[in-house]
Design a protein around this nucleic acid. Structure first.
Length: 825
DNA sequence: AGCACGCCGACT
DNA sequence: GTCGGCGTGCTC
């Protein structure tokens, strides 16, 4: 038998797999998707995933052997591997980067170099002298068995301890070895149980009680145990024992418990438990209104023809109920279901709603979950415990093996697109691909579909179902446009609130109703400015002004996290007249508390929801009526469904509308409609107040009339004329370097090379990026608009990859970073 | 991305 | 003189 080889995917940004030899001993037990340990480079040990198994020995090098197998089952299935490769190709990144994003951290291992004393080392008759710094390391190793390179560096106060360690190795004083650590640790519970003979014989137990009658604390524990676990009535219950916590929580003595264990009366044992509670789903039937039932039937009919269906349902039309029906059917047929939600909707009512129906067969995949929790969701899908997962963007990577349906709720949400580390994927689009690989169906749901999806629906690529009724007696809210400039002239603008806005909020407060105030900017004020000379504090490392955060008395950069104290005086002219310009949520909340001193005001934005349950806490407070007004960013537009909200205020609609991006209009329509949808659900009618400087902008009237289609047609003619998506495919390449000249030159050079690629396209730029400098790196953008026909995008990407490889190998551009963003936002 | 090797400046 | 800065090349 010739030897077998495995192409292993490793978490390194190199565009290929690495071929390793499969040792005979592992030959029968490995395959695609297994986690393996391999040596990479001189000593680094990494975990990788087998992407392919074959018999072709590599010609140019000797393959190293696979060192070990981590599990006795594949962690990733072949469908996922296909999906990874598709993603790497489509989003122009490396397979290792996809793997990195796909595997929960807990399943990734990497080794750490450790040093230990060489037991053979003879300190006395040592032929080489040990210097002071080496001695420090050796002394430290006297008390600790092992040290990492980092520990050594800290000990010596130097950045790199490499040279010293190398010298010690040479002198044979220490040994270097690699330690791989499994990051995932199961949650264990300590339990106790009664030992023999006390379990089987009542007499023995009685004897025992006599013996310990003088030790009341021990007696107490024993009584507690027997009360919780009636051993003699139900002998089998002893096997499972009792959680140790039950004893300690009852305030009983831990040391007495230890004595009982030491005396072999009780026995301690450990069990692995789940991090998720078992919840029973109630099977209460979901009642659909006639129009929802009709929608459901239409979806099914569309699915007969199309793989993907767009469900266009206005806010309050009850899309969730339709989802539930569909999910139930798919689950009953034995297939799996994935429901994608935008991150910020995941902690809300929809999840608890679903949990009530689906109980513990439903897994939740959160971005705030710990690494261990993520591994458990992963394992849960693998083992079949979860046949249904509700999750964020990254849950498309879970190890499903037989998806029957993927639902993407709020399909238009920009947060489905990942920007920063590669893969820069759009989860909605990836979900459609994933679903296709499973030969399953995809349902996209939205009240304000993305133009891409709506376009696909109109082109008959997707099926289309429209729900335009609201459930129950819910009415659409009444819109009011409030002109900021008019009020300002008449001196009616108080603390940035127009008279109409203040009146509406006051009315709500008078009626014990609630108000939601939307402002898409966190912090106190976007920036500060000197009244005398116009100086504006800017970030030292980025090309942006610093945001003023009042609460922490700081100026912060939202791009690199840089912060500094608020300047006392203007460094340019010495003036003390520094004022804040513009408004963030923090300032809005402050203004409201001045305008409505009696109101209880809450704020919800990135700064107030950093901790795991902060979001839920604020929502619960609001839901319970402990708050009258909630101020927030986008976060408040999602999944909130509170009866008492009758007023929704948009403080600065122009900020959304006049954004330098071709999608600004689309986004404004979506955002305003979404926030507005929070007003007056059920039988109360609500008001939406929009503050703007240009109330006659046509877009407002289309939003008010809810005329999505009209709006769409208008905007699309513009997009067609100027070659914007969805008429073309776009691709953005950012060039980054710490020297502006080099960054610019590299970008120019690249754009010239791209011009030669024989594909129908438009190349724009290079141009200084919107934010020209971030973290001391200068950025230049090239935007490419690709013809969608004839496979042009794929051809172009292929050529691009080669051009980039070539460019990177030129020595002038060695340290230049290129990032490719396909379908950027 | 790490990590090792190699070639130059500022210090005991 | 050396330490240690980081530029460059390589990883099956």
């Amino acid at each position: 038998m010739p030897p077998s080889f495995a192409d292993v995917i490793l978490p390194v940004p190199i565009p290929k797999m690495f071929t390793y030899r499969i040792p005979r001993s592992l030959e029968s037990s490995v395959g695609i998707g297994y986690r393996v340990i391999v040596q990479f480079g001189k000593k680094k040990v990494l975990t990788g995933i087998i992407g392919k198994v074959h018999k072709k020995p590599p010609k140019e090098y000797e393959a190293k052997p696979i060192l070990d197998l981590l599990d006795d089952y594949p962690v990733v299935n072949p469908l996922q591997i296909k999906f990874w490769f598709w993603m790497a190709e489509y989003y122009c990144c490396h397979i290792g980067e996809v793997m990195n994003a796909a595997l929960p951290t807990g399943l990734k291992l990497s080794s750490e170099s450790k040093i230990q004393l060489n037991p053979k080392f003879d300190f006395v008759s040592n032929e080489f002298p040990i210097d002071d710094r080496e001695q420090v390391i050796l002394d430290a190793l006297e008390s600790k068995d092992e040290l990492s390179y980092e520990d050594c560096g800290k000990l010596l106060g130097v950045k790199s301890s490499y040279a010293i360690i190398k010298s010690l190795v040479l002198k044979e004083a220490v040994l270097v070895y690699e330690q791989v650590k499994e990051k995932y640790s199961p949650k264990v519970e300590s339990r106790i149980k009664l030992t023999e003979p006390y379990t089987s014989s009542k007499e023995e137990l009685e004897k025992l009680f006599e013996q310990i009658s003088k030790k009341p604390k021990q007696e107490e524990i024993l009584l507690k145990y027997l009360q919780e676990v009636p051993v003699h009535k139900f002998p089998e219950k002893n096997k499972n024992g009792l959680d140790k916590k039950t004893i300690t929580d009852a305030g009983l003595s831990l040391s007495s418990l230890k004595t009982l264990i030491k005396n072999k009366v009780l026995e301690e044992f450990k069990v692995v438990i789940s991090r998720f509670d078992e919840l029973a789903g109630y099977d209460h039937p979901i009642e659909l209104a006639d129009f929802q039932e009709e929608g459901l039937q239409n979806i099914k009919t569309e699915f007969e023809q199309k793989q993907t269906v767009l469900l266009h349902g206005i806010t309050g039309s009850g899309k969730t109920e339709i989802y539930i029906k569909l999910i139930q059917e798919v689950l009953e047929s034995g297939s799996q279901v994935l429901l994608l939600l935008p991150e910020i909707a995941l902690t809300t009512q929809i999840v608890s709603r679903l949990q009530k129906v689906f109980g513990s067969q439903m897994g939740i995949f959160h971005s705030k979950y710990s690494d261990n929790e993520r591994v458990e969701v992963w394992q849960g899908v693998l083992s079949g415990r979860f046949s249904f997962v509700v999750g964020v963007r990254s849950s498309v990577f879970l190890p499903f093996d037989s998806l029957g349906m993927v639902i993407v709720d709020e399909e238009h949400e920009a947060s489905y697109k990942q920007f920063d580390p590669a893969p820069r994927f759009q989860a909605r689009d990836a979900a459609i691909m994933l679903s296709w690989l499973h030969q399953s169906k995809t349902l996209l749901g939205s009240a304000t579909p993305s133009f891409e999806s709506f376009y696909n629906a109109r082109m008959k690529k997707y099926g289309y179902v429209h729900l335009n009724k609201r459930f129950g007696e819910a009415q659409l809210p009444e819109y009011h446009l409030s002109d900021i400039l008019v009020d300002k002239k008449k001196n009616l603008l108080k603390l940035d609130f127009t008279r109409l806005m203040r009146e509406k909020i006051q009315e709500a407060l008078n009626q014990q109703e609630q108000a939601l105030i939307f402002q898409n900017r966190r912090g106190y004020a976007p920036y500060m400015s000197c009244e005398e000379c116009g100086w504006i504090p800017e970030c030292e490392h980025c090309d942006v002004s610093l945001t003023y955060h009042q609460y922490s008395e700081e100026m912060r950069c939202h791009y690199c996290g840089f912060k500094e104290k608020v300047p006392r005086a203007c460094p340019a002219c010495g003036s003390h007249k520094l004022t804040t310009v513009g408004m963030g949520t923090e300032r809005i909340a402050e203004s409201l508390s001045l305008l409505f001193p009696e109101a209880r005001i809450g704020r919800m934005d990135l700064d107030t929801t950093r901790s795991k349950y902060a979001y839920q806490k604020i929502l619960e407070d609001f839901g319970a009526g402990n708050l009258d007004i909630l101020v927030g960013t986008q976060m408040i537009t999602k999944g909130l469904d509170f009866d008492r909200v009758t007023v929704v205020g948009i403080v600065d609609a122009d900020r959304i509308l006049y954004f330098p991006d071709f999608r600004a209009g689309e986004r404004a329509f979506q955002q305003i409609t979404q926030v507005a949808g929070r007003a007056g659900r059920r039988n109360r009618h609500g008001s939406v107040v929009i503050q703007t400087r240009k109330p006659d902008n046509d877009i407002f009237h289309q939003i008010i009339q809810g005329n999505y289609e009209h709006f769409y047609i208008n905007e699309m003619s513009e997009r067609q004329r100027f070659f914007y998506p969805p008429f073309v495919k776009t691709l953005k390449i950012t060039t980054k370097h710490k020297e502006i000249k080099i960054a610019e030159r590299a970008s120019k050079h690249l754009s010239n090379l791209l011009k030669d690629i024989p594909v129908k396209k438009i190349i724009l730029g290079p141009e200084k990026a919107l934010i020209g400098k971030i973290k001391n790196q200068y950025l230049f953008d090239i935007l490419i608009k690709l013809d969608k026909s004839n496979n042009a995008p794929a051809l172009f990407k292929h050529e691009l990859a080669m051009v980039l490889e070539e460019l990177k190998s030129q020595k002038d551009f060695k340290s230049v970073r290129f990032t490719v963003d396909v379908d950027p936002y």
